[in-house]
Write a protein that binds this DNA or RNA. Structure first.
Lengths: 199, 199
DNA sequence: TACCGGACAGACAAGTCTGTCTATACGATG
DNA sequence: CATCGTATAGACAGACTTGTCTGTCCGGTA
């Protein structure tokens, strides 16, 4: 009863397929029919697991959030200094950009398709971005916290994070790597200035 | 013959309506039927002016580009120093965010809905972003060009511009003004460091 | 008056979309 | 063996999509 299926249960297959299609093609441009046919699942099975297409999208974003934060923790956790940790963050994207068909940040793209602020999708995206920002504050830049005022520290985090998101969007736009390289370099520069070093 | 209509010709009305709807609701979520009904134009008239929905979107982006660069020039041109000019750029967005239903950058949102790099829409967006970057280099930060190496100057422009786009996206996400304020502050800080001042 | 470009209204084609439904099959448990 | 949960396939409804086409009307020009 607990182990109904051996290889991959329908729900997993659906989310896996949706993950690929929603990310690559966008939410509106991806139909339920394509999802069920490519995941090899009956339509009735689909609607048994997900009440609607939007619910699937939410499930996908939640899973993506989980995987993303996990990977971020792993990569950042391997380093001690704020500088190397920031570099580790950017390396994550650097690897993604080099992949075929880079599509930027899945969360940002989804937010663009849902105009209503009150949409649960938008809430997912907000939560994600908030969590990443908190991660940067707690696990990347933490060693700077006590070297400055609380407001100054918050601003530092905001800037580092805005620059990060800006680089992701620019890289998506131009389909090139330089925005990420430049943003990393600038972030490290900002930190060295915070430490009071001359440029 | 040349002045066929007194108030507003169909083509203008269509683009005006499309501008509002594409921006507010997104491209995929806006149907031709809504556009023609809200602009008070017959469907046949619509297809007489635009071969397809995508062509309308391109026309809209081109017009938006025009208006945007015009407004940018006007606002930035009123100031002399790089610092005040950057502030003028951010003020443009600051005003937009305060409006009802802020939706971020129309170009970035459109790019998110068109996954293919080769899409003419994507080309429009790339052109726009390239032009804004050039504008920043030529008309905003120009006075810094000779104070540093060419590569250093290019990087400065890229960072300032990435930070700008990052702030726009963050503001759209959180529907708040602080990303713009913080990014402006950080940009000015970066410039003061470039001038070799202590923080 | 006759004509003609352009705009109008709206039916229509052909396909897509989400979501529901029926009917069938299969494996585990009672 | 019977039952139940979960999967399958696929028809179907109903709304919506883009785009075409027919026919009407009106204002300016020859």
């Amino acid at each position: 009863m607990l182990t109904t299926s051996p290889v991959s249960r329908p729900r997993e297959r659906i989310i896996e397929t949706a993950s690929r299609l929603f990310f690559r093609q966008g939410y509106c441009s991806t139909g339920i029919n394509q999802i069920i046919s490519e995941s090899g699942v009956a339509k009735a099975s689909f609607y048994a697991h997900f009440p609607s297409k939007e619910d699937l999208a939410i499930a996908w974003l939640r899973q993506r959030e989980e995987l993303w934060m996990q990977q971020l923790s792993e990569r950042v956790g391997q380093h001690q200094s704020a500088e190397k940790r920031i570099a580790a963050m950017y390396t994550m994207w650097y690897d993604q950009i080099r992949e075929e068909g880079y599509r930027g940040c899945g969360f940002i793209n989804m937010a663009g398709e849902f105009s209503s602020e009150e949409s649960p999708i938008r809430a997912c995206v907000r939560d994600h971005k908030r969590r990443v920002r908190q991660f940067v504050a707690k696990h990347v830049l933490d060693q700077y916290r006590d070297t400055m005022t609380p407001d100054g520290f918050d601003e530092l985090v905001d800037v580092i994070y805005s620059l990060f998101d800006g680089a992701i969007v620019q890289a998506q736009n131009f389909m090139q790597e330089w925005p990420v390289e430049v943003a990393l370099k600038a972030s490290l520069n900002m930190l060295s200035h915070e430490r009071g070093e001359a440029s």
